[in-house]
Design a protein around this nucleic acid. Structure first.
Lengths: 338, 338
DNA sequence: TCGAACCATGTTCCCGGTAACGTCGATCTC
DNA sequence: GAGATCGACGTTACCGGGAACATGGTTCGA
């Protein structure tokens, strides 16, 4: 159990026992078709019998393929990015890749450069950045990286492969929903604007709000946390002039509701609130939160498709853009009569 | 960028340019002391100049060390397990290990056996199971695994290395807190009992409640989700006899509050609610949730310490048990006068 | 009937590092 | 001052697979 090296077998020993050459075993293990069926059976029997697992390091060395992809995740605690990561991991496994991930936020000492170095040192065949800040994207642009790079971001980027959740569409759904309810003065509490996702949501909000001829109002820039939303709402002096708040994510929305509640401002009677992400608890917040749901499951597949194609030098599937859905719940209602 | 192999250099080419043998480069790269300082400098210059990164597969093959650990995480969406995973990843990186993780839940087709096979196929030097179900632990016990195995669970286990958050202490803190407030009839809404953590919390609750001479009451077994809590609370016919609920995690607590609210039952006036985990939103639930906080950050370090020691055949640090803390918030109060 | 094409398999070398041991000059010891 | 020791390297032989090519028996077409 400790360091007892139980004489891990290798492919040649398996071959000898099966009475073939090691190349035949190798071919069987890789599912190559040029092996007679009876031989394949015999080899597989021995392999199963001995519980043989080929040495992945040797395989990587000889084939020059690690079948490993590296994922940088900016905020390893947030629901959205994490769901994306899980989804990528699962899709990768299905495509017979493995994933090494590294979270930037939380470990303050970790720079994008460090992260990239850590991943390339593992010999990843491709790199993927989830929910990046623009500074991380700059790092990706600046550093010479010898493998394909994919960024999960709202807008296509000529430098990278991209797969995106359609943040614009999400923000538009929110604005349209509020507008349909009759709101014409909406505050946007954005995430930090160096987050690409925050920026995309903010831009789309802005554009759409203008199209609806909503009141132009400076946005508030938060930090994604519920604490921020809470503090912000608590500092309000009275019932604010706007009739709705579009929060950049569900956490801030939760904090906002809490803070407003403490100020005696009711949601949705006095102010409507919308979030973004549809975290698992959102349907059970008080009130249940109207929010935007993203299709994380599809994301992973798209990422892995693009990356594995790129890693194998194949034609790269066109940039993918995944849809979003508005979940209307009790936190939004028509504004009180002015 | 695609498959253009930019002639990755190897250690011998570096050596030639630096005017030394490849072994000297190897020694420098591994920080061995038997290299003259001036030589080391020269080699490092060349290495930096060329941006050389040694091939990890070759290194692993020759040294028979992958410096990789595998992590099985049962529920890759829940806050607690995920935080643990992040913490392990960070500690691993600090110890110059990399992590491959695999989530069991969510991908229904993934059995513990598959997960173990996937990880051992990568040549991991050690295995770690986070927040496992007992069935996964059985699988770990059943399968012959040639590397050290560590399980993050409440109780020590002779079969494995263990690191644990002290679930018992957490549950006891909860019961003591409720008892101090005057509660003598508490319902426990547990997680699925094949989860070791759920089981540990339930046992400790039971024992402690008995010590306080609380009313013995069958527990309710949930599924960790807010939906479950909501559905359960909504089905209540009237104000139930118990005066407090201890939920197995914060999500279920959130759903319970929501469901109770819809039944017109107020928290904490009519019923006190306690959760477990202290998810980031918990301070901003309405009402803010009394819950148990676990020290995930310390967990990762303990896991990696134990695993790396074991992987290197060293003396294994004694089983670690990490503390918990009760966060008292507004969801708990004294019971109404009976 | 004979060479070509093909199928199934074997041989050989190489991938890029590390371990183990060899070498050689300088210093130390008695 | 000769042998021992040591420091700073170099040489060689692997690690366990896969790529490329070689081999030998069949089948096929002319």
């Amino acid at each position: 159990m400790t360091a007892g090296s139980p004489e891990r077998l290798n492919i040649r020993q398996v071959a000898q026992i099966a009475g073939v050459s090691h190349m035949t075993v190798s071919r069987v293990l890789r599912g190559q078709p040029t092996v007679k069926e009876s031989t394949r059976q015999r080899v597989l029997e021995v392999v199963n019998e001995l519980n043989f697992q080929p040495n992945s390091a040797a395989r990587a060395l000889a084939s020059r393929r690690t079948r490993r992809i590296g994922v940088m995740i900016e905020n390893g605690s947030a629901y959205g990015p994490l769901s994306t990561l899980r989804s990528v991991e699962e899709a990768a496994r299905a495509a017979d890749f493995s994933v090494t991930s590294i979270a930037l936020l939380g470990s303050e000492t970790m720079t994008p450069e460090d992260a990239i170095a850590h991943l390339t040192a593992q010999g990843v065949e491709a790199l993927c950045a989830i929910a990046p800040r623009s500074s991380s994207v700059s790092a990706l642009r600046r550093i010479r990286i010898d493998v394909p790079v994919l960024v999960v971001k709202a807008d296509p980027d000529p430098t990278f492969l991209t797969v995106s959740v359609d943040q614009h569409a999400g923000a538009e759904l929110v604005v349209d929903h509020l507008a349909a309810l009759g709101h014409r003065d909406v505050l946007h509490v954005a995430g930090p604007l160096d987050w690409l996702d925050a920026r995309a949501r903010e831009r789309a909000f802005h554009v759409r709000a203008k199209e609806w001829r909503m009141r132009q109002r400076p946005i508030v820039v938060g930090d994604w946390t519920a604490d921020f939303g809470y503090d912000y709402a608590r500092r309000l002096e009275a019932l604010p002039p706007y009739t709705a708040i579009f929060a950049g994510n569900d956490d801030m929305a939760l904090g906002l509701v809490h803070g407003l509640y403490e100020r005696g401002i009711r949601v949705p009677e006095d102010i409507s609130i919308v979030g973004f992400d549809d975290v698992p608890g959102a349907p059970h917040f008080l009130p249940p939160l109207t929010t935007v749901r993203q299709d994380f499951d599809a994301l992973g597949g798209a990422v892995v498709d693009a990356l594995s194609a790129a890693a194998e030098g194949q034609e790269i599937p066109q940039r993918t853009r995944l849809s979003v859905e508005l979940k209307v719940r009790a936190s939004t209602a028509a504004p009180r009569e002015a």
